[in-house]
């Protein structure tokens, strides 16, 4: 060990005094030093040439082209240059939100709202970022925190529909259905938004609570306000399925189809109902109708595959199950795996 130290000590002394015996080593060191110097120079030359305005212009350009990765990079550089404007913080936060970096987005929306506390947009985005963060971790407190900021936004601007929608989502996520309904009712009272949509949402809260009859009442209110609100018919159908009233369910799905024959959901729901009732022939017919509208629908492909399986059409069944798996149906993947094992 000491010999090694001595040997290297001599070597270092020689390098420091510029007397390197090995020519190859000497040139290698020179090349490496030149390389490092080139990198350092390139770094500084590039960083000296740009002004704050140029960076801000670039950032806004990327932001308007929805290239959020580059937009975020440039906004970060602008902020490093001590620019503290609400707009910059908000846009940077939105870019971070789009990139899925919710914690950082929250930080910058908070900064934006602290500079301009009367900007309801900052509160909306802050609530949105917190909601998304909470959805990832399923954190109740963060959901409530998000709702708090959204309420502030509603106080500032009671005419913003997106704020009511997000507030409802936050409260529903933590099971506070009554609170969610309060916000939906506030939106309805303002008479400024599509009433059917909010009645439908109130219906959804009752559905999530397991109060299907009450849910149907609100879905019917939605239809009363707008006869062509197809989703409400489907939702009523779903409630009847949950109450084991299959006939009424099919009737409502068919009403939805009468209003819009290109709406795929009722076909899939009817096909699924027939499948559950062991009526595989009818189920396959309905699934085929759904596939005529959208051949790439994974649920329709799965139901058709399973119905064909029950009808003994193994080859066709496998074909549709493979399609369903390709379009992202997990049950189809499991079924194919099970068959391969067998």
């Amino acid at each position: 060990m000491r010999n090694l130290e001595k040997q290297y000590g001599k070597y270092v002394k020689k390098i420091l005094s510029g007397k390197i015996p090995d020519k190859n080593l000497k040139y290698s060191f020179i090349i490496t030093l030149c390389f490092i110097a080139t990198c350092v120079c390139a770094y500084f030359i590039r960083h000296l040439n740009y002004s704050r305005d140029y960076l801000l212009q670039k950032a806004n350009e990327y932001y308007s082209n929805e290239e959020h990765f580059y937009a975020a990079r440039y906004f970060a550089k602008v902020i490093k240059l001590n620019v503290s404007e609400t707009d910059v913080y908000k846009k940077y936060g939105i870019s971070l939100l789009k990139l899925g970096n919710y914690s950082q987005a929250v930080k910058y929306f908070k900064l934006a709202s602290s500079i301009d506390s009367y900007d309801e947009d900052s509160y909306y985005f802050l609530g949105d970022a917190l909601y998304r963060k909470a959805s990832e971790t399923d954190d109740k407190d963060t959901f409530l925190q998000a709702a708090e900021y959204i309420e502030k936004g509603i106080d500032l601007n009671p005419d913003s529909e997106k704020l009511y929608l997000l507030a409802g989502l936050c409260f529903r996520s933590v099971g506070l259905y009554e609170k969610a309904r309060d916000f939906y009712n506030k939106a309805l009272m303002s008479n400024k938004f599509n009433k059917s949509g909010f009645y439908n949402l109130i219906g959804n809260t009752f559905d999530e609570e397991g109060n299907y009859k009450e849910a149907i009442l609100y879905y019917e209110k939605a239809i009363l306000n707008d006869n062509s609100f197809v989703v409400a018919f489907c939702n009523i159908g779903d409630m009847f399925v949950k109450m084991n009233n299959y006939e009424s369910a099919v009737q409502n799905y068919q009403k939805a189809l009468e209003l819009d024959e290109n709406f795929i959901a009722p076909y899939i729901k009817i096909a699924s109902l027939y499948y559950d009732k062991n009526n595989f022939a009818e189920s396959s017919k309905e699934a085929l109708k759904a596939l005529k509208i959208n051949p790439e629908d994974n649920n329709a492909n799965y139901i058709l595959g399973m119905a064909y399986k029950q009808l003994g059409k193994e080859k066709e069944s496998l074909e549709y199950l493979k399609k369903a798996a390709f379009y992202g149906n997990d049950k189809a993947v499991k079924e194919i795996k099970r068959r391969n094992v067998l």
Binding site: D22, N24, L25, Y27, S28, I31, T32
Partner: peptide
């Protein structure tokens, strides 16, 4: 480069 002292190159890299 660093042909006679290859380990040195790996350390620098």
């Amino acid at each position: 480069m660093f042909y006679n002292k290859k380990y040195l190159f790996f350390i620098i890299a």
